[in-house]
Structure formats: C-alpha cells, structure tokens
Design a binder for these strands. Structure first.
Lengths: 140, 140
DNA sequence: TTGATATTGAGACACAGTATCAATATCAAG
DNA sequence: CTTGATATTGATACTGTGTCTCAATATCAA
C-alpha cells in the first residue's frame, strides 16, 4: 500500500477526518529525499502558498508516525529526526561528529545478534536504534 | 585510578579549581547505583543540608563526563541520562516500553560487526549507542 | 596578603515540543 | 442541502531541559 492509502485507512480506522493540512504535508514529505525534522518541515510547508500552523505540523508528524507513513529515525542534538518511507527497510546510522553528515547502513548479522540477545533475556523486541558516532572519511 | 583521583588530575591538567560543590556532587553520584539525570541529581543534592545551584549541577555533570567520571549513557524522552562508573565497561540498553525499566547487556559479537562496518566505510568510530525497545518478561 | 582568575548562584534566555481553547472544517444522518 | 456532532485548526501560552550572562565570591599561587 502506498502512503496515501495508509493515511486513508488509518484515518478511517481511528474515525478521524481528512483535511487539506494533512494532504499538503504528505505531499511535501513524499518529496523529501532524506531526513527531516519538524521545524524544517514547518518552514518548507509555509514557504509556498500553503500554510500550516506549527502546532498542526507537530501533531501531523506524530499522526504520520503512528500511521507508519514516516519513521522516527534518530535524535540529533535533542531534536527528533524523521524520514519518509513505509517501504524502506530498517537501517542504522553513522554520524560524523565533525561535519554532521549522516550515513546509513544495515547489517543483517548485527540484527541477528540482537534477536539472539532478546531471546536470551526473554525480551520481546519492538524496535531498536543503533547509532555510531565517529569521523567520516572526508573529515579525517 | 578512582574517581576522586580522576577528578583531581583532570582539574590539575586543565588549571581548574577544587570546590566544595564538585566534591559534594561526586560523593552523591558515587552512591547512586544505576542511572540518573540532571534534574534528579539536582533535587538529591539539595534534599539534605547541601546546596548547589541548577546551573552548577549542569556544569558539573558536563565536567565529570569530560573527566571520564560519569558516562552519558542514553537519551530518555529528550533527557540525558548518565551513570557513574569510570571502571565500567561499555554496554548497551534494552528499554521496556511498558514499565520503562532499563536492562543492560553487552555483546562482543555486535561490537565486532560494528568495527567491521566502520572499516568498510572508512569511518573512524569514536562511540556508539545501541538501544533496543520492547516488552520485558514481566510485562508480557 | 594580595591579585589573577575560576566558580558560583540567580535569573534570563533558547529551543523543541505540548496543552488550551475558541473558531472552523468535515462528514454522516435526516 | 441542512444540520448537528465532533475532529481539527491556529494562535498563543506554557513546559521541560538545558545554556548564557554577569556580578559576587572562592580558590590558589606568588
């Protein structure tokens, strides 16, 4: 299912209502290639003719995350960072502490070990975040 | 070296000064068994006869972290969480999303895979954080 | 004892995010 | 189409976590 469908079914399931604000935000988020945060999205939404209030941007981001349309991917200096992509597979992040650039990676072996550990501790995993800090190749 | 020694040598190295506030905070932190945050420490410090201002608590926490006396271990709802223990080895966390309990674990295989990935990407790792969210055994 | 300077406390400030609430938009039922 | 119930919005006040400022004070070497 595409993200518009996901939003529609989430809205129906919860007895919510379709609004132009949500439609506008979804269209803009779809076009963002990488990561984004609430403030950045807010200014992008209000850059053009469209206009959505700060409160609604935050509310809608939360709604989209609950609907599975976007994912909260990490915290950057106390700021939540999201990314579009219901079809995207899970991945982890490397953050360069010098230039702040973000690199994605995924390692099935690490995932496997995590599952192993959870089994051992009888812990039912619902999600995880792995973040490696360091210095990237071009900053060395 | 114990934490008092670490503080002393860090202070000397940086040309800083010994103060009663720092001593008081170190004594209290030493007695905290698990994790703590700035606000919790602040109220603990000011509960008794001792008194340290909010600003100084935050400043001193930062100083202790730089001196290696405490470690920033994770972020919990936008709040930084620390733990005492210069001798403690690195470990990762499992957080129960129901009861909020925190479990520690460490897995050398995961660490190894992380190093492998960093080598592959020519990324010089300086630190990492792995956090598994889920439901703990007693909350199932 | 003195002088340089690191430190402190109090409070203002910064920032991300949430709560409040009256006005408005949506939508199902008639 | 109109109506009524209610979900949503925008404006703005507020919260929580942490930082900055700056005058007063404590520390320490000379």
């Amino acid at each position: 299912m595409d993200s518009s469908g996901m939003l529609k079914s989430y809205i129906e399931k919860k007895g919510l209502k379709k609004t132009s604000e949500r439609a506008v935000m979804l269209e803009i988020i779809k076009k963002i290639p990488g990561h984004f945060d609430a403030e950045g999205l807010l200014s992008q939404v209000n850059r053009n003719n469209t206009k959505v209030s700060r409160a609604s941007v935050y509310r809608t981001i939360k709604l989209f995350a609950e609907a599975g349309i976007i994912k909260e991917s990490l915290l950057r200096g106390g700021r939540k960072v999201y990314e579009y992509g219901p079809e995207k597979t899970h991945h982890d992040h490397m953050i360069c502490v010098k230039c702040g650039k973000l690199f994605e990676f995924s390692d099935p072996m690490i995932e496997k070990h995590q599952e192993e550990i959870c089994r051992k501790h009888r812990f039912q995993m619902t999600g995880h975040k792995l973040e490696i800090q360091g210095i990237c190749n071009s900053c060395k």
